[in-house]
Amino acid sequence: MNSSVIIFPGSNCDRDMAVALKKFGFKNKMVWHNDTELPKSDLVVLPGGFSYGDYLRCGSMASKSKIIDSVIKFAKSGGLLLGICNGFQILTETELLPGVLLKNKYSKFICKNVFVKINNSENKYFKNIKKNILELHIAHNEGNFFCSNDQMKEINDNNQIAVHYCSQNGEIEDSFNPNGAIKNIAGLFNKEKNILGMMPHPERMIDNYLSGEDGSIFFQNLINNLK
């Protein structure tokens, strides 16, 4: 399986993502934002970080970079496109995903473990996944998902919510919502479910000496589904 990780100026989880992808069997290539061609890929990842310093709006300037046209083309033709954290923000700025990620409710950067519950597993990302509730890590200042009522209706009609923030036992309640996101949304699909944007970082949870190991479950399952 081939994967590509796009590096924007200011990306800082690009290496972590590449390490994780390689660990679970992907042949990964790093792609510079100023390139125009994507290498042949089964999965393209927009990594976390602070592309363009998060200036203006998070992800806004990355969504105008040269490589993005190829990324959009790739996704529109059904290719798997995963955006983590800043990558999720870029996906909303390119309008490949609906909504926007606002400043966290308490106006603070938050770095900690959270639990998320998978809402829709009829897709390449979560099909056959062995756990329904994953402990993942978040590290962001703008993860407060927001959208219009019309967009929300569409999201619901198409079952686009990927993961919700929840308790250890899977209760989706306000007190387990770290950033104020509508409906505890932590991750979102496009209508076709080939594009996934997620605030939590599975790549930071890939061995038990780090914050935990549920990221391994995510990546292992993903590559199994692609084989």
Binding site: N12, C13, R15, D16, V19, A20, G48, K108, F109, I110, C111, K112, H137, A139, H201, E203, R204, I206, Y209, L210, S211
Partner: peptide, 16 residues
């Protein structure tokens, strides 16, 4: 305080 600092980026923090 330290929840406002990214303490896990780079994927090698084994004691936070």
């Amino acid at each position: 305080i330290w929840e406002q600092y990214d303490h896990t980026v780079m994927g090698d923090t084994i004691q936070k």
